[in-house]
Computed example of a mutant assay.
Amino acid sequence: MAPKQKITKEMILEATFHITREHGYENVNARSLASMLGCSTQPIFSRFASMEELKKVFHAYAGKYFDRYAAEAMQGGDSFRKLGECYINFARNESNLFRLLFMSEVMDLHGFADMYDDPENLEVAQTLSSTMGISFDSAKRFYMKMFIFTHGIAAMLASKFVHLEPGEAETMLGEAQRAFAAQHTT
Rank of each mutant, 00 (worst) to 15 (best):
Y143C: 05
L101T: 00
D108Y: 08
T127K: 13
V124A: 09
A125G: 06
V124R: 07
F102T: 01
E105S: 12
I148K: 12
S138F: 11
N121G: 04
S138W: 05
R141Y: 08
N96R: 07
M107L: 15
N121S: 06
A113R: 14
R141C: 10
Q126K: 15
M107F: 08
L97Q: 01
V106M: 07
F142L: 14
K140M: 11
M103F: 05
G111W: 09
M132L: 15
D117W: 07
S135Y: 04
S135A: 10
F147E: 04
S135C: 04
F98Q: 00
S130C: 06
L128D: 00
T131M: 14
M103L: 13
Y116I: 04
S138R: 14
F142M: 08
L128F: 03
L128W: 02
D108P: 01
S135G: 10
M103H: 11
S138L: 04
T127E: 11
L101H: 00
L101M: 00
S95F: 11
L97E: 01
I134N: 01
S138V: 04
L97F: 03
F142V: 08
M144Y: 12
D137Q: 12
M132Y: 15
S130V: 14
M146C: 14
D137K: 11
E123C: 13
D114K: 02
M144I: 14
K140A: 09
K145E: 13
N96D: 04
M103V: 08
K145G: 13
K145T: 09
R99C: 09
F112S: 13
L128S: 02
L128I: 11
R141N: 15
D137Y: 06
T127F: 08
S135D: 10
S95P: 15
S130T: 14
F102K: 02
F102S: 00
M146V: 07
S135E: 10
E94P: 09
E123Y: 11
T131I: 15
A139F: 00
H110V: 11
T131Y: 13
M144F: 14
S95R: 15
E120P: 08
S129Q: 06
E120F: 13
E105C: 04
T131H: 14
E123P: 01
L122T: 13
D118Y: 08
I148L: 13
M103P: 02
G111M: 10
D114R: 04
L109E: 08
L97R: 01
M115D: 06
D114S: 06
G133N: 06
S95N: 15
G111T: 11
D117K: 12
V124M: 05
Y116T: 05
I134V: 11
D137A: 10
H110P: 02
E94L: 03
M132T: 11
N96M: 03
Q126C: 10
S95V: 05
S104H: 02
S130K: 15
D114T: 02
L97D: 00
Q126H: 14
S138G: 12
